[in-house]
């Protein structure tokens, strides 16, 4: 069992706005996530789970507290430094897939490699390999409009893993899919977690999906309410 924490939040707060209209989204979150874990983050809307995910994804910074990612204090990094961190270590999967329209699956998957400055040949090889991993190799030249929702989410996952990130952040990855496709996506994430050693952080509000995770973190009112083991292993 992995024990080494790749992510460590200590006393993280997040306040939106200021003065009397200020809203405290996080009220002091402490959370450790072990390398290689598969974590499902749950909680009602407004509980702070999305804010936490934004901070964990280095898209946002805490108002106070510390966020250690692989030993780096992310809260001290500036915008571009966090972007480089994302580029190097993180992969994102969103509820709404967020693929570039009118762009082939392969081009979508290649995108992170482009920002890494990989050459065309490497991009194509690694892009195709990632598409192969999600079972969409034959669909490489299809645009999102020509793919089903499940397929689009697979392309998005391929894009997230093409750089072989340490952490994959998934924000309600099955939210727009029917239960059959959802299970397929969850199986894919489980497989990536198990066989590629990617730490997976997933926000979901469906207990059936959370069940795939090894650890389930529940948020309530800007605080971690509980941590329990899931059914995944």
């Amino acid at each position: 069992m992995p024990t080494d924490p790749i992510i460590s939040l200590r006393g993280v707060t997040k306040v939106y706005g200021s003065g009397p209209t200020a809203f405290q989204a996080l009220k002091g979150v402490d959370l450790d996530i072990a390398r290689g874990d598969f974590v499902a983050v749950m909680g009602p809307s407004g509980s702070g789970k999305s804010t936490t995910m934004n901070i964990l994804g280095c898209l946002d910074v805490p108002s106070a507290g510390s966020f250690l990612f692989k030993g780096h204090h992310v809260e001290t990094l500036d915008r571009d430094q966090r972007a480089l961190l994302r580029r190097k270590y993180l992969g994102f999967v969103f509820q709404g897939f967020n693929l570039l329209s009118r762009t082939t699956a392969l081009e979508n998957v290649e995108l992170p490699l482009l920002y890494r400055g990989e050459d065309r040949k490497t991009r194509q090889e690694q892009g195709m390999a990632a598409l192969d991993k999600v079972g969409l190799k034959p669909w490489w030249d299809h645009t999102p409009a020509e793919l089903s929702g499940g397929q689009q989410q697979r392309v998005a996952i391929a894009r997230a893993i093409v750089t072989q990130p340490d952490v994959l952040l998934a924000d309600e990855p099955t939210g727009n899919l029917d239960s059959e496709r959802s299970v397929e996506i969850m199986e894919l994430l489980t497989d990536l977690n198990k066989n590629s050693g990617i730490t997976v952080l997933m926000v979901t509000h469906e207990p059936e999906m959370a069940a795939f995770a090894r650890t389930i973190v529940t948020f309530k009112d800007g605080l971690v309410e509980g941590i329990r083991k899931g059914e995944g292993n």
Binding site: L111, P112, Y115
Partner: peptide, 16 residues
């Protein structure tokens, strides 16, 4: 805007 968001999330820096 969303495309820009995707690019930024993927790790594009502002100057890119």
């Amino acid at each position: 805007t969303r495309e820009i968001g995707i690019r930024l999330a993927i790790g594009a820096v502002a100057s890119e």
